[in-house]
Design a protein around this nucleic acid. Structure first.
Lengths: 203, 203, 203, 203
DNA sequence: GATGAATGAGTCTTCATTCAT
DNA sequence: TATGAATGAAGACTCATTCAT
């Protein structure tokens, strides 16, 4: 009798449908102010569907959102940095460019990663996602910086990477509220600020 | 265990008692995962006391916490930067030193300011607090940077300030999780990264 | 004990189930001394059901109770008065008879209408319900009374209707506490008291 | 040091001060929507004073208000009816006149008596107050009506008294909302409606 | 597989009431 | 005596989660 209003979809597409909706709503209202009803409505699905394809709980749903968006951002940055061989400056600039591009393009994903509370139950997941990115930056730096023999490069690069990533985040956040979505300009600004210092640190 | 269960206190002390407890609990669990019961228990008071001296609502309570911690941090940084006259490099270093000192000393205040969700009703307040700090940094930069005539210095300094503040936040966050609470080291690291670039930008 | 704890019912039945329970509890304890928990328990439902089917708030729930009971009473009286054509005395007697029948049969509904506080947020609703009934009586009177030309009949009938309705309420209230539920007797008493005066006023 | 701002008052005056304020506030907002703070503020006293001189609890405070206002109303009506000797009609008219005068003059007292919820804890007190008045009316009627020997006059007069009192209440309520505070008019209206019937019932 | 309907558990907030001064 | 300050207890309302269809 029912004209079969919504076709059955393969689970992967359903999961994407759910996660896409969840990212939109979470980025808009944050974890606690988002109700599962709102996610279901945004996805055009019923709530049990959201539970089935979203991990079974609201917390797990956000967890998956965070992981997916972190993956997206990380692979985008990594890909760019590791693209055609080039000198250090160019690679760093390319990485930043990719970062700002990604952040500007997927504003919702950015919000889910960087404007969520880093307290309580999901603090670890958010921290983990940010750490993965900072670690990746630290790796890139480690390859470039001159580190005296016998010193764990991490000791030197880790704080620098944290600062660099923070600078990028701060600038990205500023760009979101101001009206400067041009990745070229943003990457240029950050390079002008950071590269001289980094170049000196390379020895 | 408490020997004097009901002792009348001047309102200022009560408010401090309530805000101190609230900052501790909010920093631990975030806004939504914190119950007013938990705040009351942490303060060793009854819930009505928390309402009376905490602004009358949970939201207003967090608002006041944010303002107080932002004031504390801001005045600490401002005071240091504006201390004895000195050249630009020294002043920036002193400002950063004060920042890392404050952040390291008041870890809970830092969490309340920088690990809260920037979504929902209190996004404004958090953003405002952070903006006040970034703006202060921007002012300091504007006094130092060479800006071509006819150009609003803010246009140049605002993104730099955001990046600088972000770098400091990133480094502070790293310091919190790593075990490096020495403000000298942290300020030194950040200066080494940023000052060369800034010096060049001064022209 | 209940053999079918979760049975899906059509919304209309659920609403009736909720309103019936609410009328019982409100009539027993009044608005403020009634908790939504008590309504839920009386209905054999969970509290969210009461909210879903009861209008979303305690106030709206009582509002709906009042409206429903007023409708019931009003239609019962109107129907009787407007039944088969008859002279004025018979029609008034029939209206009173219907009133006392309804009031005696639905004691809870009567309490909700006539023993609620007429103060605060719901005063309007209670007054409105009573006014609808008094106005209906006034209409009946206006059709019978001789009113000098050029005089708004309401001026004459309104106070009489108020007095008449008040007399009926007072008698109904007495009948509720005494043990006289016979509508014939009650209507007869009231007719004996009022009709001679009304007949004279008809001119 | 304190200039002794409020003189110590004899307890009776304090009680009057408290009850006066309470009647005003209760009549305005009803029992449940009135806070003891509001009563204290209206009385210009501190809350413990209200408790000391108001009976020790909110419920007892309203109880006393009800009793006092009922006394006032009852003695006013009784006094008038029992004044100079006169025939039945005149005495009833005088009683009604006194009733409407009292009700018009002390609107707050009227509200406390007649617009409070007659449900829950204070139902008995309100009912008792109204019953005292109705009983007084019944007594007056019993002296006038012809009751067959061997019949308890109450059987006959009680319902009539209830109806009569109800009519008066209904008219008083109408007069409060309409703009007719003239006791002469109100008593006249009610006499025109009721006296013919009563006269017939006298046999 | 998909959903409308139902609920258990938990939170904010308010007030009548009472000490300690 | 008179009070500012403090609290215990209770109630409205919401939402993540899961059956029964």
């Amino acid at each position: 009798m029912a004209p079969e209003p919504r076709r059955r979809l393969p689970p992967e597409q359903r999961e994407k449908q759910v996660l896409d909706a969840a990212v939109r709503v979470f980025s808009r209202s944050g974890f606690h102010d988002t109700s599962m009803d709102a996610v279901a409505e945004e996805a055009g699905l019923s709530k049990p569907m959201v539970y089935t394809h979203g991990g079974g709980s609201k917390e797990e749903l956000l967890r998956r959102c965070i992981r997916r968006e972190a993956d997206r951002l990380l692979s985008s940055v990594s890909g760019a940095a590791a693209g055609a061989p080039a000198d250090a400056e160019v690679r760093l600039r390319r990485g930043l460019h990719a970062f700002f591009t990604s952040v500007t393009t997927h504003r919702d994903g950015w919000s889910v990663l960087y404007r969520q509370a880093r307290t309580g139950a999901l603090a670890d997941e958010v921290q983990a996602a940010r750490t993965r990115i900072v670690d990746r930056v630290a790796q890139l730096l480690a390859a470039e910086l001159a580190v005296p023999d016998g010193v764990d490069p991490t000791t030197v690069t880790a704080p620098l990477a944290a600062a660099l990533a923070g600078a990028a985040e701060g600038l990205a956040d500023w760009a979101r509220d101001a009206d400067e979505p041009d990745p070229d300009v943003l990457a240029g600004t950050l390079m002008a600020l950071l590269w001289p210092g980094l170049a000196l640190l390379r020895g």
